[in-house]
Design a protein around this nucleic acid. Structure first.
Length: 637
DNA sequence: GTAGGGTTAG
């Protein structure tokens, strides 16, 4: 009785200690209790004591102990128990088998399912639970999602009826595979069994849709749930931050508060990354304050998200502050801080941090190397870049992925080594994708290599025929060389294919509200004031040497009109808006969805000088810190 | 004995 009660652990222990006639069951109950509480040492001592006292452990004893190992990630002790299980002839038991399958799946360092499969294959009579255990393990390991689906097929062949847990895991496997067809087939089974509105299944379904960007389907799955729990809400919030607009996420967040659910660390993490993606630092700070109150400050996941949020919002000092207070740092923490430093232009510091991380004995992962290589790329450290690129496999067995090659192509291309970049692409062990070609194309434009640029553009278009990016880059290349006939030709093709150009927009957060501006935007209530101020500003900066760079205008019009076009760029509007609505010495932080244009970059330097304001501009690629007429990127971007 | 949601990059 006491052992089952949640809080009365001490009473249970007292009763147990005084029991005159203990049997295997009472020992096992006590061990189970200790295991569940995470008192592994006591559980083990009790287990040894039990065996020494001549009591036979049974399947329940082992099940409890093995499950505790799974929870705590204790692989070696789990293996010892496995040995005992075999000794006591319990390896064929489904219950014990399931706990071992689960333990090996959860504890395997590299996501290997070998041991789980060995245990599973030895069980002679499978039931829903054992099938589900192995399917779940495969889905969670991330590397065996296909196997999960195959096992499900075998399960059906064996005429074992799946349940809600099975489907939940299957949807997870499908979303790992981004395999909508299989997902739909399984969904049909779910509907047939009437399980689509059950939390356990529905939440996994929502998550699958979220991960493939199908927010409408996710919403539908959310709406039909019998009862929504916090996980349902969290998944939708996360979907909003990733797929639509973070403002939507904050809307759902207020809905959650109305339901009375107590927000957990998952809600906070999603909201933080929502704030980060739109650069809403004031919102991020509010959430930060709330999660401190809720006691999530020492949650490592949350701390990592905070570092990334501040860094992505342009406040690297705050990111470093959070980082320096962290007690434990894992790969993600280090990678976040290295990425932040690199993006903010502190490449040397980023590389030092990488060294510190290695010294601390933390193994880098593939994402870490993306950060390291792009740090080298931002400042043109070619030798350093090669060194890291070569060592990633040699030292850590991380095979370079597409992104790593793209970083190297960027590094070489930016510095003008276009031939070398091309050689690297040819030497890749797999076919280069649009990202790699786009990178090379960008470099060709900067260095005016039209032949190679054209070739790369054609490759981009071949790889992504329905994406406008390739056409636009090619047209920009022609425009920068004044070849307007070719520009017109590309426009025509795009029109035929019904491809539009992604509109440039910039936004700025003032007093907790995000103000967004498009090119030539006049819709803002303060528009008139903004343009007046902008005119004034341009006159001022011209006096100190600013010359409009009309080559940044990619249309075939007169120079005067080109200058006018330049004035309508969204980043200039947003910065002017910031100047009007804030005062010295507050720094102005503006975000742009595309790369900053050359003229705007130049103008920002002058503005930072005449207005004596620090301007931070995050474009689609990195941060630019303008101060006293100088940019942190050293005009290399 | 079986679940579902988060962090780094692109």
């Amino acid at each position: 009785m006491f052992a089952k009660g949640s809080g009365d652990f001490d009473s249970a222990k007292k009763v147990f200690d005084r029991m005159p006639d203990r049997n295997s069951v009472s020992w096992t109950l006590m061990i189970t209790r200790y295991s569940q509480m995470g008192n592994r040492k006591e559980a083990v001592e009790l287990f040894i004591n039990m065996v020494e006292s001549g009591y036979m452990p049974d399947k329940f004893t082992f099940t409890s102990l093995v499950s505790a190992c799974a929870e705590l990630g204790l692989l070696s002790f789990g293996q010892q128990l496995h040995g005992q299980v075999v000794k006591y002839g319990l390896a064929f038991d489904v219950c014990v088998g399931c706990s071992l399958v689960d333990m090996y799946a959860k504890c395997a360092e590299d996501g290997s399912m070998v041991n789980s499969r060995k245990v599973f294959d030895l069980i002679p009579d499978h039931n829903v639970i054992s099938w589900t255990s192995i399917i779940t393990g495969c889905g969670q390991s991330g590397k065996h999602s296909k196997e999960a689906i195959e096992l499900y097929c075998r399960m059906i062949e064996d005429q074992v009826l799946p349940n809600h847990f099975t489907f939940s895991s299957l949807f997870k496997a499908c979303s790992n595979l981004s395999d909508p067809d299989t997902g739909e087939q399984i969904y049909a089974h779910v509907v047939k069994m009437g399980l689509a509105a059950v939390n356990c299944v529905g939440n996994a379904l929502i998550s699958m849709y979220v991960r493939s960007g199908r927010m409408e389907d996710a919403r539908k799955a959310f709406d039909i749930l019998f009862e929504k729990n916090l996980v349902s809400y969290n998944t939708i919030v996360d979907g909003c931050t990733k797929n639509i607009d973070s403002n939507e996420a904050f809307g759902v967040f207020h809905q959650i508060e109305d339901t009375g659910f107590v927000l957990d660390s998952f809600t906070f993490a999603s909201l933080l990354s929502g704030a980060a993606s739109i650069g809403a630092v004031a919102k991020g700070e509010q959430i930060h304050a709330r999660l401190l109150k809720a006691g999530f400050e020492s949650n490592q996941h949350i701390a990592n998200t905070l570092v990334s949020m501040y860094s992505r919002c342009g406040n690297m000092e705050a990111a470093l502050r959070v980082y320096s207070k962290m007690e434990r740092l894992n790969v993600v923490s280090w990678t976040s801080i290295i990425t932040g430093l690199a993006k903010h232009g502190f490449a040397t510091r980023a590389l030092e941090m990488f060294q510190e991380m290695l010294n601390a004995g933390i193994k880098p992962n593939e994402v870490t190397y993306i950060a390291v290589l792009s740090a080298c790329s931002y400042v043109g450290m070619i030798d350093e870049g090669w060194k890291h690129f070569n060592s990633m496999y040699k030292e850590y067995r991380i095979s370079p992925r597409m992104e790593h090659y793209a970083c190297m192509v960027d590094l070489l291309g930016r510095s003008g080594f276009l031939e070398e970049a091309m050689q690297l692409i040819n030497s890749m062990p797999f076919e280069a994708d649009a990202l790699v070609w786009r990178t090379l194309l960008g470099a060709c434009r900067v260095h005016g290599n039209i032949a190679l640029g054209k070739q790369s553009a054609e490759m981009v278009i071949e790889k992504e025929p329905n994406d406008s990016a390739g056409y636009i880059l090619l047209s920009n290349l022609y425009a920068s060389l004044g070849q307007w006939n070719e520009v017109a030709e590309i426009r025509k093709t795009m029109k035929k294919k019904n491809l539009g150009k992604e509109a440039g927009s910039s936004w700025i957060e003032i007093e907790n509200t995000v103000h967004k501006f498009h090119v030539g935007d006049t819709s803002h209530p303060q528009a008139e004031e903004i343009y007046k101020e902008l005119d004034q500003l341009v006159t001022e900066i011209k006096e100190v040497g600013y010359v409009p760079d009309t080559s940044s205008v990619l249309q075939d019009v007169e120079d005067e009109q080109k200058e006018e076009f330049l004035l309508q760029h969204s980043e200039k509007i947003a910065v002017t808006f910031g100047l009007i609505n804030t005062s010295k010495p507050k720094r102005i932080t503006v975000f742009k969805n595309l790369r900053v244009c050359g003229d705007c970059h130049n103008a920002m330097k002058y503005i930072s000088m005449v207005k004596e304001r620090e301007i931070v501009l995050r474009d689609s690629n990195r941060f630019h810190h303008f101060k006293n007429g100088i940019c942190s990127c050293n005009d290399y971007w």
